[in-house]
Design a binder for these strands. Sequence first.
DNA 1: GTCAAAAAACCGTCCAGGTAGTATAGTGAA
DNA 2: TTCACTATACTACCTGGACGGTTTTTTGAC
Lengths: 178, 178
Amino acid sequence: MGRVTRKVEILHAASKIVSEKGIFNLTLEATAAEAGVSKGGLLYHFPSKEALVQGMVEHLAENYREKIASSAHESKLEKGKWITSYVDVTFNNPYKKTDMNSGLLAAKAVNEELLNPIRDLYMEWQLAIEDDGIDPVKATIIRLATDGIWLNELFDLNQLSDEKKEAIYKKLISWASE
Amino acid sequence: MGRVTRKVEILHAASKIVSEKGIFNLTLEATAAEAGVSKGGLLYHFPSKEALVQGMVEHLAENYREKIASSAHESKLEKGKWITSYVDVTFNNPYKKTDMNSGLLAAKAVNEELLNPIRDLYMEWQLAIEDDGIDPVKATIIRLATDGIWLNELFDLNQLSDEKKEAIYKKLISWASE
DNA sequence: GTCAAAAAACCGTCCAGGTAGTATAGTGAA
DNA sequence: TTCACTATACTACCTGGACGGTTTTTTGAC
């Protein structure tokens, strides 16, 4: 158990650095220091920087997939299970969106192909929400609006007030099951 | 006239490098070479890497603002002018979205604060679309859905087919004036 | 209109500092 | 013995930016 934790600690450290200090400060030494591990120790787990970023992406993709899937399976809705889960988890869950953002940015910077696990995820979800019992165009728009909030958070573009966000959330959720 | 062009050429070269080779390959030398200028020449126009990225962001912000504003002023709609323009320009215009993406990513990597011109832009637009004659929540959702497409393009997450994109576009545009 | 002087636009090299990755010798726990 | 590291040293390379020059354009006095 200790081994897995250590690896995850390193991944968290990497995310923290990216989100707090930017991608240019994601160095192996800095990551090791942040994780409380020696550089050699880090390289034992992740033999290169690319492997580290790959680890970040794979880890967050797994997490995200699980959250959405378990939310969808627990849902009692007859239609709009998946799209509702997507909106719900992405808006509200303590799921670390900063980790997501760090991972995406790091992958984009280091090697585009490392984004593939996320791409697979989105292909699955798109299929699920198009077969979710509601109008596929509408369902897709709901998904996109959720992604739009995400884009705004990623670049800190236009942080909507909590009330506005709440109003949008409610409207999206209501659309998602009618 | 030749002077301005040279600066813009350098900015375009920088964007090209970011979008084709990633942020880590945006070096002063590479940018100079791509623009057909010496390193010294580049540093004459942009005295540091940060200044270069600042130039990228300011340039694209100006362009984008102009496009949306002229589209809104030319619009004959009674309500939903701004949100319609936003959707229209962001979806369809030959406005270089790759430049936008490169600029955002570069700024995010080099120095968060360089994003401020874009933030100002979004604040203006948000005010405009909330006073656009249609339900502000709905208008904001339309904007967010447009941003969602953008996020998906940025990371190449789930490229919708042209037909689906068209269907979404039409639905958003129709919502934008009802 | 001429022409020197100044300003603007550019070139090419050098260097200090930083970084990924390698190597190696050693430690303690299971 | 193997696993999961620590600690340190070292290499090979790259990059931002400074700097000192050169060429082209503009200016303004005559």
